[in-house]
Design a protein around this nucleic acid. Sequence first.
DNA 1: TACCTGCATGAAATA
DNA 2: ATTTCATGCAGGTAA
Length: 851
Amino acid sequence: MSSSSSSSSKICMNALCGTKSSQQWKRGWPMKAGGFATLCYPCGTAYDHVTYCERFHLNEPGWRECEFCKKPVHCGCVVSKYLHEYLDLGGISCIKCIRARGTHVSKPISNYTNDLPNGFIPFTGTWHPVIGSRVNNGATVDKGKLTQSSEFIDKPQPSPSTPLISHQFKQDENRLSSSKDSGMMFPNTPSLFGTPDNIRTDLGFKPPYESIPKPSLNYSLSNSNNTLPTTKSFVSPSSGAGVDGRELDKVPSFKQGQRSRLTFTKPSKPGLSIRSPSNKGSVDDRVPRPPVEGRGKSQLLPRYWPKMTEQELLQISGDLKSDCTITPLFEKILSASDAGRIGRLVLPKACAEAYFPAINNSEGLPIRIQDIKGKEWTFQFRFWPNNNSRMYVLEGVTPCIQNMQLQAGDTVIFSRLNPGDKLVIGCRKAAVSTDTKEGETASANSVAGGTSAGNGNLPTKNVEQSMANGVANGDQKPLIQEKKKSRNIGSKNKRLLMHNEDAMELKVTWEEAHELLRPSPNSNPTISMIEDCEFEEYDEPPVFGKKTIFTMNASGSQEQWGQCDNCSKWRRLPSDVLLPPKWTCSDNVWDPNRCTCSAPDEISTKDLERILKFGKDPKKRKLADNGKVAEEQVVSALDALATAAVLGENIGELGEPSLGPTTKHPRHRPGCTCIVCIQPPSGKGKHKPNCLCNVCLTVRRRFKTLMLRKKKQLSDREAEEAQKSLLALTNGVVPDDNLGISDQIEVEVGESSSKGGQQLDLNCDPDKEDEMIMVNATTNNTSQVPLEWQTVLTGLVPCSLPKSTSEIEGQTSTLSVAPADETVNQMDNVVEPKMDEKFVDDGVSVKQSGL
DNA sequence: TACCTGCATGAAATA
DNA sequence: ATTTCATGCAGGTAA
């Protein structure tokens, strides 16, 4: 339980108290909305000591009788939630009886642990606040030490707020602060490196830090007298004092100010941890346990809390001397760096400052750490200055890591062994599982240069070692959860290595990716105009869909074709459906006759080839010869476009399956009502090819004029004129007839040259998508056009297929053909293209005048 | 050339 | 916004 200084803004959440002032605030029960109830010191202490209900709910309903000990147990409040169990056969049992009888509660342990607040430690053994003392479960040991009592919670306890406690508490606080100032090591915990034994006493009074119930658990390795399945003695985080009501007055409350605020002092639930032997070391056991209090101010993050199962502790106890206590301090999943040959293990700062000796110079100190086989290793504990902070490392860990056969992803566990205050390093192998997350671990392991031996696949030797070091089978679930939380393995995927072939797999071109992108089906685009280009903005990110092909049938309506992943047959689909990435004939709910792979093809091979020809991989198109072929394709596409516009021919009728407009701009789908799609057609799409509306007639007329002029110019232009044009273009001025006398084209390449009208670099690679040309007419209307388009329009040799504006800018632009500076409606009044026209194809706009 | 050392960087986590 | 920490990397040193 955490506490803080008195604050006027707080109010005790005990309804019967409600005080707004307290010398110290304590944390109470977990609340549904998160966080914990705030209690004043007396109420909080009562809560800590499990006397809350006796003190405040005595006259309230909800008291029942334990089926076993017949003692009254409160059942009707949030405080008592964890202090009783409902029995399978009815009735309730206090946790003491459950524990004493070894009765497994009806509710699965895992469920209970899930119910518990994060980090809440199920009590599994003897409450024992004294580190380093041997405690047998159920037995009372040294005077002044808290042990499990048979009268546990049988009797309501008086308030623990005695002067002695307060005094001692003060003492402790003062000592702590002074220790901190002096750089004293481990002021509130027995030092790992030689806590003077002379300050210990077996009498009732102990040095403050020893009298304080440690927030973590102690694992008494004595097990001879245990009557319960577990052999460990855990000291609950701060709740030890409260569990044994008899000793409450003698034990000061836990040093609140130094507690990690993430540790919990709520009395744990002894019954929860009582489990059958079969449950030992199960997944449910691996509950993060807040470690003992370190000296540092830093809060220990839960990911560093030791997550040792009793089984693991049993194993450790088997390897170590039986008459000792091991206290898990923290653990860390090894990163690739940690497990690498460099031999440096980065220590979490909070852990290093809490459990390792204070160091003032970066050279640090040599530290001896014993592995669980008793072998002693010497590491250099040091730090590096880092961002006005420190980065703590253990150097020279490679031999130890190798000895334990650890790899990235495995976990090292630092514990304290008493007596002797020795540091112990244990380990836990990473589990091998099959879910996605494990790929990360696997990757991490391969980054580390080895294979990870999971629990399930460990060779016998490894299994033995793992078990000896605290590995329990079946802990995949916690490990996975841990990995989700942890960031040292897998989370830094930016640095994950990738095999070359994997990288090649991911080498998807922009075009390929773009063709697969679909707008989120639930989002409507917002259209905005930027530089005469219309952009669709979606609130939701695009989704990937299966690549399909659009054609136009004889009636001029669009059709969509999708290929089955199983039989590779093409199936006709409604034009407005979006296929998932994986799609088979069985998913063809639109055509009952072709909803199985055995159904014949609907389309002939010849037609299929045509479809594939038009819908072929844009990468292949791009990789194709960008010389003549590209030129021919460009001209052909232009001609086809003009032809379609002028003649209103139905391409489908001519046997040439048309690529619907959506093949160029997949974000526009048939039926789309965005401002782009409702604009006049570009010859294919929105309006039928034989549409006779004014808009379509105007467009056809314009294209007819355009193409006729263009053909005429191309044929009339002499080769030397072309050369002249080329030269002029090189100088940045193009005396192009198409542009009129006063028109000039400023050719700019690249972003950096946008200001100065820099000359066109004719060596620029047209395939470089980041190179673009700004065609600037004197009208100050600026459009962007790729180099190859520019060359086409100026009569130069086209370099390659036209690129879409999206290709250039990564944006989508309009598909439509519309006069610049005119709305759709205004188009109807346009008779001749005397003004600037916006010639659009594939999202590329070129403003020209005098055509 | 390989390895070591110490610091810098920046993504991710946390406050 | 700040802190943590995994890892890159430059410079130094040893082989």
